[in-house]
Design a protein around this nucleic acid. Structure first.
Lengths: 339, 339
DNA sequence: CTGTTAGCGCTTTCAA
DNA sequence: TTGAAAGCGCTAACAG
């Protein structure tokens, strides 16, 4: 009976020994250094294959300046298709640049953000993409000074100067109001997400802006803020629709609200003109008009901005704003009821 | 005019120097070693804060055995909600265990799989989750022998012994056939994904199994294989529906096909009984009956299996199979037309 | 073209 | 309770 040796990972000096060269030469051969003879190169590569050598990138990155090929991506929830699409777009660009994505979620908890970010920085990610949740990013000031590229996606940083890429929330909703007014609506309701979110507040501003430029007086009873549970959406919508002040058109400020509404109140939704912010799968089939932009493309652009900042760390941070597109599909093109 | 010093990252010896102790003591203090006085501990922690010290986990992990707290997760496409949900479930469990997720996509290219996996292994991930695409995993044999936990999700490994967690594809579809037969259907069509996919083949087997146990003869003209583009789905469906051999019921073997069908042929779809494999958002609203399972839960279970294997690396790999549930919502409960 | 030496930043003996 | 010294695996600087 033979005793099986516990298999263990080959190191570069094992490869070097088998090939009969020094570790330095082995290292050079494996990184395809032109200063190595083809013949020794082959010997080393064969030895590496025989020993199933896998270079240890921890050691490599530590030795060569401590910068890795990983990019940190911090967001709230991967199960939400929107976040996943942004991640997919970013991953696509980074992959082509030879960079990998480390993802972490904050689980909708602002306090977790700093924790998660810290872990990524300890891993020495080359850059950090952040869909921020916390309302104070001054904890990143030191990192900014060190030159780590910090890119804020969908929402801008607070108490920090950094690159950001956001949507034209105000313009999008204001345009939505215009669109509804063009169909004859004057009583336009707003079903809105939690006011703690920057995007929600911006979209609210866009709503008021739209009303104003169409000479419609702002009526607070037409605005409802939700906390994102199906129940609360249902309730808010019902209240809105049963009031004697019933709107003839409604804007919902994000796709989670829209989907919730569809799931709980799809029939009543057909009795008013409806416009949603954010596109979603099957919205076309359901003929839901939306204020739209491409989430995957947002991710790609965020990644491109990141690559740019990696190349030129000292340049002034950029603020990119993406325009929205109004996609009419029927739901927002209904005329007001004769009431 | 003062010259600003180029800011640079503090190392543990800087912290030690400021606190007036040795690097070893600083290290111990920061890892909360009970053998360090409270007073020196405080001095070190203060110094670390002052210098904004962030430990370098590359160095740490290298020194302490070369194992990181990262888990590799390789899949095809994050923009596909299904993959994202599985990732979300896995991330949730890993996060709670203090592990991070490194994600990479193979972009539907089997050859990229090995490349991407290699990168992760060089990063010394603690375990590897794989939604495999390639048809040969023998390249992982060496890694298996080294004891790296390898977990295959949704599809089993080929030419390799490893843990896997899959769906009961055969049972699910066979049960679907039973369900349709119970409503009186005998001519049941199958719209299927590419046969190169293991899940597609299994679901096809389940279809044949279902027919057989209901004494229905298999008719190959009722089966169409798609390559996943909207056009091909449209065409295949039209061919099927216009033949003089038109089925009275149809099963689609995955949610991408189902969504495609809905987008291109939703009206005609209402003229037959329809059952889809995989659930999807708004399927309830659209009253689409499905053979379902929880993708997020699949991810969670995969992660739990991973944690188990990390703890007991030498145990025999497990094969977990998740049962499906048939969710009737209307579309599959239509009776056959009188033709 | 190749080898020797040193050291990335950290933790872990071992000794005091 | 703390410090000195060694070394994780790799690569870069410097010789030769």
């Amino acid at each position: 009976m033979t005793i099986l040796p516990t298999p263990s990972r080959a190191r570069i000096k094992d490869v070097a020994a088998l090939a009969g060269v020094s570790p330095a030469t082995a290292s050079r051969a494996l990184s395809n250094d032109p200063a190595v003879t083809e013949i020794t190169k082959k010997r080393v590569i064969d030895a590496a294959r025989t020993l199933r050598f896998r270079p240890n990138s921890l050691a490599r990155d530590l030795r060569s300046g401590g910068v890795t090929t990983a990019i940190g991506y911090v967001m709230q929830d991967l199960a939400n298709p929107w976040y996943a699409q942004v991640a997919a777009g970013a991953e696509e660009i980074f992959r082509k640049a030879g960079l990998e994505l480390i993802v972490a979620t904050t689980e909708e908890d602002p306090l977790r953000e700093e924790l998660v970010v810290r872990t990524m920085l300890e891993r020495r990610v080359q850059a950090l993409l952040l869909i921020p949740l916390s309302d104070d990013h001054s904890y990143l000031e030191g990192e900014r000074q060190l030159g780590t590229p910090l890119i804020f996606v969908d929402r801008p940083p607070i108490n920090l100067t950094a690159d950001s890429i956001t949507i034209d929330n105000r313009g999008g909703v204001a345009e939505g109001v215009d669109h509804l007014v063009n169909s004859g609506h004057r009583r336009i309701g707003l079903l809105s997400g939690p006011e703690s979110l920057w995007t929600t507040r911006e979209r609210f501003e866009g709503y008021k802006l739209g009303l104003k430029r169409n000479d419609i007086e702002f009526d607070p009873t037409l605005v409802k803020h939700s906390q994102y549970t199906n129940e609360s959406v249902d309730e808010l919508f019902s209240t809105l629709m049963s009031s004697n002040n019933r709107p003839s058109a409604l804007i919902s400020t994000n796709n989670r609200l829209t989907v919730s509404l569809l799931q709980t109140n799809s029939e009543m939704l057909e009795t008013i003109a409806f416009l949603g912010f954010d596109d979603f799968e099957l919205a076309d089939l359901l003929k839901i008009s939306v204020i739209s932009y491409d989430a995957v493309e947002l991710g790609r652009q965020a990644a491109r901005l990141t690559l740019e900042r990696i190349q030129r760390p000292l340049e002034t941070p950029k603020q990119i704003e993406i325009k929205t597109v109004l996609v009419p599909r029927g739901s927002a093109e209904r005329n007001p009821k004769n009431v």
